[in-house]
């Protein structure tokens, strides 16, 4: 039973991250994808120049915003993808590997976002 204790503590923690990431993805992602994935590449709106984009990202609040924008949705993905593989494809025997892959990916992505945003000029 003792080995179950950390699991039971981590589950609500990860669920909170999943839920917060779901909110961030729902509120912020559509407009980002519309602009950077469709409107700019298709020429509906003129592309941001490098200088302009750098100027936008200069403010610390924008960097914090982008950090949250990258990190929380990754934990949202980790939770959903884990259960999709578990229930949807019924890959139950690989449960541990999948858990490590999903949350490990989210943690690495979060670290990468922090590193990139801090190392910007």
């Amino acid at each position: 039973m003792a080995t179950d204790a950390p699991k039971k503590l981590l589950e609500p923690f990860f669920w909170t991250l999943f839920s917060a990431g779901g909110v961030v993805a729902a509120l912020l992602m559509p407009v980002h994808i519309f602009l950077f994935g469709l409107a700019f590449p298709l020429g509906w709106i003129r592309d941001l120049s490098h200088t302009r984009a750098l100027a936008l990202i200069e403010h610390p609040l924008v960097r914090i915003y982008l950090f949250v924008f990258c990190s929380l949705p990754l934990f949202h993905w980790a939770h959903r993808f884990r259960y999709t593989l578990y229930d949807g494809l019924q890959i139950k025997h690989l449960n541990e590997v999948i858990t490590v892959f999903c949350y490990g990916g989210a943690i690495i992505g979060t670290a990468l976002a922090g590193y990139l945003l801090l190392s910007l000029p």
């Binding site: 993805a25 949705p73 959903r80 993808f81 999709t84 992505g109």
Partner: peptide, 15 residues
Amino acid sequence: ELSSIFVAYFVVITL
């Protein structure tokens, strides 16, 4: 549930 893959994909694009 699969929408989460696209959410993660766009985070990668942003990074």
